[in-house]
């Protein structure tokens, strides 16, 4: 009994200690922490917009249009008299929702393709990676535009469009790390214990190949926030009246000379979000890099 207990304790303790190692290394990276804090801030906005700024992001108040920032409207109002701050906070939800789901789609599909290509090699590898090359050959914004143009603009089409365009990046990164792991002796040892290919890939190859994929996830989120805003800017993104940073920018651009704040605030939000995810990605890369382990 006591032996069982002590072992269970030992297991949980040791697992924590390796994670603790990672946290300690991540903490040393100031940039990563700053990025994480900004992301947490945006996450809070995305999760509790109603509690922060109220639910009214859509009703128009034409007598109060183009209000410059003041005590009542800290970030001012837009061309329909809507509060810019409220719309930005709700916009965080739209942006994060779409970019996280898009990255989830491309990460899952890309990792599957990359694992299969890298693990089996040969003809399989060639066929899969050439398909990925075709995807890579099309500029991702252009691909997004054509998909949205073909299927109409809705959140799901947007997620699908963004997801497809970054599959290739994930599959390449995953493939390259799988190839280095595939020939390790513990993979051969796993085969000798009678493990199936599926088991070897999911339990031995993937956990060892995870570090670069995690970094790529955070970098891709930044990229997809940018492309959603880009698509919204040219009118192919989220349909009105759903607030989205890119479409707010686009609405404000006609009046940029007189009412620059309408453009500045969402622009800063996009910049901060992209910046934060990139910082987090860098921090994660440093913390996960095995060469830096002492």
């Amino acid at each position: 009994m006591s032996k069982e207990m002590s072992t269970a304790d030992a297991i949980s303790m040791k697992k924590k200690s390796q994670f603790g190692d990672f946290v300690r290394r991540f903490k040393k990276n100031k940039g990563g922490i700053v990025g994480l804090l900004i992301i947490v801030m945006f996450l809070i906005c995305a999760l509790f917009p109603a509690q922060l700024v109220g639910e009214d992001y859509y009703s128009q108040d034409l007598s109060n249009r183009y209000c410059h920032p003041n005590a009542e409207h800290i970030f001012g109002t837009d061309e329909l008299g809507r509060d810019v701050l409220t719309r930005m906070v709700w916009g965080a939800r739209t942006s994060l929702e779409i970019s996280l789901s898009a990255v989830a789609v491309s990460c899952i599909l890309g990792t599957i393709v990359g694992c299969i290509a890298g693990f089996y090699g040969g003809v399989t590898d060639n066929i899969l990676m050439r398909i990925m090359d075709v995807l890579m050959a099309i500029p991702s914004t252009l691909l997004g535009i054509s998909i949205v143009a073909a299927f109409g603009s809705s959140i799901y089409v947007l997620i699908f469009a963004m997801g497809i365009s970054s599959i290739a990046g994930f599959s390449r990164i995953c493939r390259s790390s799988v190839i280095t792991i595939r020939d390790q002796e513990y993979i051969e040892a796993a085969r000798a214990t009678g493990a199936s290919d599926f088991r070897i890939i999911t339990k031995y190859v993937l956990p060892n190949a995870l570090a670069p994929i995690i970094v790529q996830i955070s970098m891709s989120i930044a990229a997809s926030i940018l492309s959603i805003s880009g698509l919204s800017f040219i009118g192919l993104g989220v349909p009105a009246p759903t607030p989205e940073w890119g479409s707010m920018l686009s609405n404000g651009r006609q009046v940029i000379r007189d009412h620059a704040y309408i453009v500045i605030f969402p622009g800063v939000a996009i910049m901060l979000a992209v910046f934060a995810f990139n910082l987090l990605g860098d921090g994660l890369r440093d913390a996960l890099d095995p060469r830096l382990k002492s």
């Binding site: 002796e185 051969e188 040892a189 796993a190 000798a192 956990p207 060892n208």
Partner: peptide
């Protein structure tokens, strides 16, 4: 079953 030459690399580094 088989015992491999190099114990350093015959175990999966990410599992207990």
């Amino acid at each position: 079953s088989m015992i491999f030459q190099d114990p350093m690399t015959a175990l999966n580094p990410v599992e207990t």
